[in-house]
């Protein structure tokens, strides 16, 4: 459903939608957004169910933690604001406050997941360069770093191992392997920049992937925030 939306338009739509959602304080609108995002994810060919379930575990935990905080540590203002809510009649003000906070965090996360899991990295960078005027150097630096991610992870493990074989203990968040990595990254950036420029890389580079904005992209970037605003401020 949202796979084919232009990534810049998708960014604008979901960003504005998230900000408008931030101005609403009802669990019903949050639930509506969660269901809408589930629809986006189910209909997307790019969603990997294994990855989705892996991401959902910490989100569920954060959401539950906000529920307990909202329930056990409500502010007086929140209790007053929730007095007319239908859920308050069943569970009381504290419970409604917990529900509001937990669904709020969950809805933001679902909007985020439906963006992250349905967007191709190459298309996103190409679209940002072409539509959002991102500097070519910045776009290609991001793609370079993404493609080197697994190598950087391995280098980080190697730098820890190099210390351990010398009988130097490495604790979590230790600065010693981090220092080694910083030195390596400074060297890598110099060599990579030289190599890329030697191959003719410049701001005038022509891109094979051409991204365009169509009517449905504009409809999405305007429609989603408007839908959330209507649901949050008019209907609910």
């Amino acid at each position: 459903m949202i796979d084919s939306i232009n990534p810049t338009a998708k960014t604008v739509g979901i960003l504005l939608g998230s900000i408008i959602l931030g101005l609403t304080f009802q669990w019903e609108i949050n639930l509506f957004v969660i269901l809408l995002c589930l629809l986006f994810l189910i209909t997307s060919k790019r969603t990997d169910p294994a990855k989705l379930s892996k991401i959902m575990i910490p989100i569920a935990l954060i959401s539950i933690s906000y529920f307990f905080t909202g329930w056990l540590f409500s502010s007086e203002q929140a209790l007053f604001a929730g007095a007319s809510d239908p859920a308050t009649i069943i569970g009381g003000n504290d419970l409604t406050n917990g529900l509001n906070l937990s669904t709020r965090v969950l809805s933001f996360a679902m909007l985020g997941i439906s963006y992250s899991l349905t967007t191709d990295s190459g298309e996103l960078i190409a679209s940002f360069i072409q539509q959002a005027k991102m500097p070519m150097k910045m776009g290609y630096a991001i793609l370079t770093a993404i493609n080197l991610t697994s190598l950087i992870h391995r280098e980080y493990d190697n730098s820890k191992l190099a210390l351990q074989v010398r009988n130097i203990p490495v604790k979590p968040f230790d600065t010693k392997p981090l220092f080694t990595m910083m030195v390596r990254m400074i060297r890598w950036s110099e060599r990579l920049a030289l190599a890329m420029e030697a191959k003719g890389f410049s701001e005038d580079r022509v891109m094979q992937m051409q991204m365009t904005i169509k009517a449905k992209d504009i409809l999405f970037s305007v429609g989603l925030p408007v839908l959330i605003a209507v649901m949050g401020f008019v209907i609910l």
């Binding site: 770093a145 990254m185 110099e190």
Partner: peptide, 18 residues
């Protein structure tokens, strides 16, 4: 900002990603 600057920022971001 040069290409080397952008690359350094991106590579350091990945290191901190770990």
């Amino acid at each position: 900002l040069t290409l080397r600057d952008y690359l350094l920022m991106a590579l350091i971001s990945v290191v901190f990603g770990v």
